[in-house]
Computed example of a mutant assay.
Amino acid sequence: MARPLPTLPPRLLRLAAAQEGLLTIAQCDMYGVDRGRRERLVAAGVLRRVARGICDTRRDTIADRLTAREYDHVRLWKVWLGQLLAGPGAVAVGEAALVVAGVHGIPWEFTPEVAYLDGRYGRSSEHLMVRQVDLGDRHLVRNGLRYTEPERALAQAVPRLDRRTAIAVLDSARHRRVVDARGLDRARELARGRRGSMRSAPWWDESVEGAESVLESLARLDCIDAGVPPDELQVEVFAPDGTLLGRGDMGFRLADGRLLVVEIDGAGVHSELAALFRDRSRQNDLVALGGVMILRFTWKEVRAPGTVGGAVRKVVHPP
């Protein structure tokens, strides 16, 4: 008779689910999963060693999640890995803190950073960077993760990022109400004097509230860099009888009086057949007005600098 595969206790599985699938050896010991049992679980493929003292209960790898475009889970997985490696008293800072706060746009390749509440030094590794930074007079906790306040995290992260990424992150922080106008001003002030602050100083003014996704931010910047800034974001188009036909990501008023609408097909929404048909029906209604042109771009096209801006420029300023 075949021997049943070893399993993890339900309470330990619930804990792992709250930590993006990760567990420390100490947590395993606490729930009765000793070294010998862990070895059997690893041999059975129930656990995978991902760093010293850390195991992963998820069977899909980071490469699998990237293929499935589960970028948010990859980012959070990295933050949890860093926090568990750092141990008690660690607070996520910089890009890691922004991930915890729910800000979008941080590249998945980032290395999570922490600082300790007591200011002590710690050892960095390939999975973790320990910083000596000012945590201010407070920190926050979300879903079990400690993180520095978003204003301070923005001040730490923006000067280190490239322009497109930094502005997309700022747009996301505003759109998701992670910071308000006053918080953005405070973050900009906290960034002064940091390495990269002179280079990144103009980027704070390039951020807007109207961008509802990272892809929209990147497309807007591409158009600005091509010399064709949008006249309106989240532009609404109405039928002659006043019926709302749709809303585009960006609108451009053409010299002949027509409206150019740019739409970004983001990940997820347009993968369903029904959504595609709804979009096609809406597009036909818009084009039937006669005074509306539509350009649509995929997420891959938006990620390639110059693609969106170049296409829009040809319409706005035809040769």
Rank of each mutant, 00 (worst) to 15 (best):
R3D: 08
T7H: 00
L8R: 09
P9M: 11
A17C: 08
Q19F: 00
E20A: 14
I25A: 14
M30G: 06
M30Y: 11
G32D: 02
V33R: 04
R38C: 12
V42Y: 04
V46N: 01
V50F: 14
I54M: 05
T61K: 04
A63N: 08
R69T: 12
E70G: 02
Y71T: 15
R75P: 10
V79Q: 15
W80Y: 06
A86Q: 08
V91R: 04
E95L: 00
F110S: 05
T111D: 08
P112I: 04
G119Y: 14
Y121I: 06
G122V: 14
R123S: 02
S124A: 10
H127T: 07
V130F: 14
G136E: 02
D137T: 10
N143D: 07
G144I: 02
G144V: 01
R146Q: 07
P150D: 05
V158P: 07
P159C: 00
T165Q: 03
D171A: 12
A173S: 03
V178M: 12
V179F: 05
R182E: 13
R182D: 12
L184D: 12
R188L: 09
L190V: 07
R192K: 14
R192W: 01
R195I: 00
W204V: 01
G210E: 15
G210Q: 15
E212M: 13
S217W: 05
R220I: 04
D225T: 06
P229K: 13
E232C: 08
Q234D: 15
L244S: 11
L244T: 04
R253E: 09
L259S: 05
L259Y: 08
V262C: 09
E263A: 10
D265E: 13
D265M: 09
G268Y: 06
H270V: 08
E272Y: 10
A274F: 09
A274Q: 14
R278D: 14
D279M: 04
R280L: 11
D285M: 01
L286I: 03
V287D: 02
L289W: 09
L289S: 04
L295K: 06
R296G: 11
R296H: 13
F297V: 09
F297Y: 02
W299Q: 05
A304L: 14
R313I: 05
